[in-house]
Write a protein that binds this DNA or RNA. Sequence first.
DNA 1: GGCTTTTGTCGAAGCGCTTCGACAAAACCA
DNA 2: TGGTTTTGTCGAAGCGCTTCGACAAAAGCC
Lengths: 338, 338
Amino acid sequence: MPTISDVARAAGVSPSTVSYVLSGRRPISAETRARVQAAIAELGFHPHAGARALASSKTNVLALVAPLRVDVNVPVIMQFATAVVTAARSFNHDVLLLTKDEGTAGLERVAHSTMVDALILMDIERDDVRLPAIRTLKQPSVLIGLPADHAGIACVDLDFEAAAACALGHLAGHGHQRIGLVGPSPAVYRRQTTYADRFLAGFLQTSNELRLRTATHPCEPGVEGARAALADLDTELPGLTALVVHNEEALRPLLDLLHAAGRRVPEDVSVVAVCPRDVATAMPVDLTSIDIPAHDVGTLAVETAMRLLDNRSVDYTRLLEPRLVERASCREISPSHR
Amino acid sequence: MPTISDVARAAGVSPSTVSYVLSGRRPISAETRARVQAAIAELGFHPHAGARALASSKTNVLALVAPLRVDVNVPVIMQFATAVVTAARSFNHDVLLLTKDEGTAGLERVAHSTMVDALILMDIERDDVRLPAIRTLKQPSVLIGLPADHAGIACVDLDFEAAAACALGHLAGHGHQRIGLVGPSPAVYRRQTTYADRFLAGFLQTSNELRLRTATHPCEPGVEGARAALADLDTELPGLTALVVHNEEALRPLLDLLHAAGRRVPEDVSVVAVCPRDVATAMPVDLTSIDIPAHDVGTLAVETAMRLLDNRSVDYTRLLEPRLVERASCREISPSHR
DNA sequence: GGCTTTTGTCGAAGCGCTTCGACAAAACCA
DNA sequence: TGGTTTTGTCGAAGCGCTTCGACAAAAGCC
């Protein structure tokens, strides 16, 4: 592996000049630059990352802390990860992948040993135990999610309250008055990942504002969970004409159950899903849905990290506006049916 | 951030002594070690990763090159990644996540700039364009998959030929003679990821050896793909009594189609799936299946990398033996039906 | 009891880069 | 035209660690 000195020698300049060609931090004449670049290309020189980190105290590496349990939501996690890696690369950074189960210790390890310049954390809980830790790190963090006390910490997420409002607004606009919510599994609520609560809060508030008759229910995984949730909603809200489903996993069983019961979508019951676009379109019925914009959120998280790193101003809380895409699962209810 | 000199000063020793306490590469008296460790704990010292890498030319980082398209098989990719990260941590290494679409350039970038000690690559194609490149790297690579020319490169994977033999053996043992294979999508064959071919080869060979009547068909994604594949198999092999499904994604639509057609599993048609355990058990029928042991493969890949790094001997080709788990989707055919 | 070996510690060199200060030459400005 | 600024380059220091050689003291060996 050639070093910067080898390049310097080949180009007939000093190592510092090579460094300045690379970084552009000082003016270099066109000829010199050309000679240096030729030497770099010829020798196949790549600066040693460790040496660089040591001298400049920048690693050009981001930590991504992902929940790698083989759990729900795997495809969404993957979308986040893909977006983060891709965006990071576009800023000439790499991504170190950490699992959530290393917990606080993992964050401190990579931060204290200066392996990364910034951290991006997913699957943030309401009172996430990692928050106090990240506040003490010298590296900035960006959260994908919104914990209770997020003062001074950059957070990026979909605006789930607005998403709920949007879903209900759409259905109400189509004349629906009796609407059930199939929520995430109780485990999600228990884990206190706040998107569930935020969606629920938005749902209840909008339901109130629009004077709708609604009922809400979490939904255990599996067909049985879906069956139970649906049964409960039917009992609490007889004659419901629409469902909002904020549970990717329940979507498929739910549609199967409706089908089996002879309840047609959208003729007998309208459905709005909250899920990634590809999940919505992969269902037997093309679902009107609100995107989980994993790609945008991931990209934005990286952009925020970059701004933080070269201390430009950032919005500490960025909740992305939901976008509802009409497909084929909602129908207009005629006044007579209202 | 305290440095090793700070620790040395606090403990009243030289920096090199602290280093030897940390690495254990030279004998240190118990008292000294205790004093140093106390100082480390008190100051909260963490060695600077870059400095370490520079001085020792080891980074304690592994590159994991994953196909991060939002494509099929996402859960399996995730399982590999989880296993790799977890195993790497158990060897005190971290994982740098690269996307496959950075291609050869990405590998060379991280390798040449000495960001990683070794590389683990997934989604290996028959004539993977990256092979020549990894042969020139000074860091060792471990492939998850088996390309055509793998001489001198460590490869780890499930033995898909044996898996096919295992599936057919099981069905033949239950008296089945007419067996269809639902293969991966044509895109997978086109991409030349060899597991598809290896499974197919094993299938055909065993079919021959056991003198079975078989037909094979790739399967496009979606319900329509499954419908077409099933129809083709039924035409080519009328009266088939069993299906081997080597296509996670097709599993669900396939079962739905059978159900809709009134063909019961296992009464009318037996099914053996090749997929991760959790997929098999999440189906409406508990499927007898051959595991894709993503966890084992990922772990083994890391172990192999570690052996290569401290040049211990390795098996350059490790094909894990398939394990078939009997569940509820195969039935014994009575002699009269044979 | 002298010999070698092992144990325990230190100092210094060096890993490959960035960055600061210095300085000469060129360009700009009144 | 003399002074100031900008341009272009260099040398040296230093980032924080590992590792080698040196060496004194302790231990092992007939």
